[in-house]
Structures are given as C-alpha cells and as structure tokens.
C-alpha cells in the first residue's frame, strides 16, 4: 500500500487546493501517471502515482484545501 501525500511546496506554503482528480477509486494506474492536480497560492502542480497499482481510496474532493503532508489517496 502506498500513500499519495501533498509534498512540501516550499517554506511558507502549508496548504494546497485539490484542483482536479484524474482518477477514481478502483482505477489502475502506472507509476508516473498524473493522478491529481493541485494548486497553491503560487503555482499549479501535477501529482504523479509513485507506484503502479489500483486506487483504493480517495480522501478529498475537488475544491478541498489540504495540508502539506496530508494523505489524499492510497494505491494498493
């Protein structure tokens, strides 16, 4: 099981917004696939699957504010 967490985005950035989910629970993903888009006060980023597998859980909705370090998705 691998968690996708919101990465450290620079010293003063503690939160990000989930802009778009590109996967749903149950989807198969390859390592490196973009699974979600997030935005911070400064920039927009694509978050990739760190490993191949099946999306087992998505913890936040589009538009949600999430904290740096928060688990937003799990791959099995």
């Amino acid at each position: 099981m691998t968690d996708i967490i919101i990465p450290n985005l620079g010293n003063e950035i503690s939160e990000a917004e989930i802009t778009e989910w590109l996967v749903e629970t149950g989807d198969d993903v390859e390592q490196g696939d973009v699974v979600l888009l997030i935005s911070t006060t400064k920039t927009s980023l694509e978050i990739e699957a760190p490993t191949s597998g099946k999306i087992s859980q998505i913890n936040s909705n589009e538009g949600d504010l999430v904290q740096v370090g928060e688990v937003v998705c799990t791959i099995e």
Binding site: S14, E15, A16, E17, T40, T41, K42, L65
Partner: peptide, 11 residues
C-alpha cells in the same frame, strides 16, 4: 487566514 483562504498580495 491562510493564503489559500483569503486574498493574498499576489492575488
């Protein structure tokens, strides 16, 4: 409020 919740100088 954090910059994600309120208008920042950048915004």
């Amino acid at each position: 409020l954090s910059g994600m919740r309120a208008i920042t100088l950048r915004d």
